[in-house]
Each structure stands twice: as C-alpha cells, then as structure tokens.
Amino acid sequence: MKKYVIRRALGLIPTLFIIITVSFFIIRLAPGGPFAREKAVPDEILRNLERKYHMDDPLVVQYGRYLFDVLRFDLGPSFRYKDHDVNSLIAGSLPNSLILGLVSLGAALTLGIAAGIVSALKQNRLVDYTFMSVATVGISIPLFVVGPVLMLVFAMRLGWLPTSGWITGRYGMQTLIMPAVTLTLPYFAYIARLSRASFLDVLRSDYVRTARAKGLPGGIVIFRHVIRGGLLPVVSYIGPAFAQIVTGSVVVEQIFRVPGLGKFFVQSAINRDYTLVMGTVIVYSVILILMNFFVDLLYGYLDPRVSYD
C-alpha cells in the first residue's frame, strides 16, 4: 500500500512533464502571439517586448527556462496582464472556483446518489419517474439557459437573491446560491442516472438475493450489501467530475461574474498568453491526476478485489 502510493506519486512527475512539454510546443504552433494586435505594432517595440520576455531566444532555450521556472513553482509573468504573474492570477482565482466547485460537487453527489438509490428501489414508480425527469432536464438544458432563467426569476422578478457578485462582496453567501445551483444541476443529473443504473444492477444481483434469502431486514440489505457495490461507478466518475467542476465552469462564472479560474482558460488561449495557458493547463492536470489517484485509492478501499501489488 505504502509502496503503491509512492509509486503513483513518482508517476506524477513524468506525466506532468509530458503534459507540459506537449502543451508548451502546441500553444506556440498556434498562429499569432501575445503581442499581436489588430494594428501592427512597430518593429522596434515588438523587439523590445520580445527581449523583455525572452522570446527572442531559440524555442528550446525558452522551453528549458520555463521548465526550470516550473521546478521552482514559478509559472512566470503573464504576457497580457501587466504587473501580474501567473502564480498570483491563479492564487487569486482558483480558491473561488474551488469554493463554488466543492459546494456544487458536494450537493450533486449527495442529492444524485440519494435520488439514484430511491429511484432504483422504487423503479417505475412515481418517485422514479420524477427524479429521472428532473435528471433528463438537467442533462439536456445547457447552463447558459438555466443560469439566466434562475437570475430572471429569483433576482429580477422575486428579488430574493442578488443577480451576481461574489461572497467577498456586499451580498455575502447569498451570491453563492444561484451559481452553485446552476452548476449542480447537470452533475446531479448525471450522477443520479449513473447511480440508479448501478444500484438496479446490484439489487438484481445474486449476492443481494442471497442476503434476502438469509432473512436480513431490508435496511441491512441496502446498507451492508447494496450501497458499496452500487457506489463504484459513481466513485470512478468523481475524478474527472471534480477536475472539471473545481477548475471553474467558464459559463457559470461568466454569467454570475464569479472571479474564478474559468475565464483564464478561454482568455489566455485567445490572447496567446503563453504562460497563463501553461499555468491553467498545469493546474487542471495536477488536479485531475491527483483526483484520479485519490479515486483509485478509494476504489481499492471499497472493492477488496482491487490489489495494489
């Protein structure tokens, strides 16, 4: 077990190295550059800028320098946001995305799993149809529709909640509600459907029949014999879902003006802000890799057939 953790942790290094290398060169293959403007920049100025950011060095040298910086946890200066380095941009926005993401994911998991279990137990009854209709709606309607509709109803018409803003502002925690609900909906929907299917599978399994044949009461059958097996597919979904949700939903953060990481994903790519692109890629990759690692451990804890040798 300890060996396994160490091996997986060491495995992180080459993975990240490959991700950094590939993204570094791919983003530079894209036409244009950080200083390209619609109006041509005078050569003199462009050369000065390039010298300032060491872009006049050969690409390999730039790559080497960047790697060296990353090793020191320095993601470099932003090419576009003057006076900001990538570290501070991420440090300023990632926590906001994390808060929104964790709240939404927590709600989606709790409600989704509960809805999945109840639907599976009451298959083809009213509750089942109700939950699954909500889930279908949640999957089909895009966030950029749900968000503005919520805003229209609860902020504009009813005036219960602020239209946008963030928890550090005037309205405090109230600002978290609508973006969190919007972001929760599709994940809730997916988790509910996933867990319903897997709980149905387990409920029909031979070993649950055995448990019933032993005379165990329904509650014990569910909690001791059904839940663990039914959760496995949901657990393997947590990894990618977590990475997606906490690195910020671009759409939701834009709609509700949440100062999160999401907008940097889009803007840095459009601006060819090379260092910021790399920064967001690294943050996303690290979270994804760590979450998958964590999920694998959790999986092994839940399923004794998984071995770490």
Binding site: D206, Y207, V208, T210, A211, A213, R224, H225, G229, P304
Partner: peptide, 17 residues
Amino acid sequence: ISMIFQDPMTSLNPFLR
C-alpha cells in the same frame, strides 16, 4: 428454511469478508 444457489461465484457478496 435456507437456500443455496447455482453460481457460488456470484452468490457471495464480493465486498464483504
């Protein structure tokens, strides 16, 4: 009254000792 089933590979809960 107790039962034993056809397939012992699937009749025991794989997650429990």
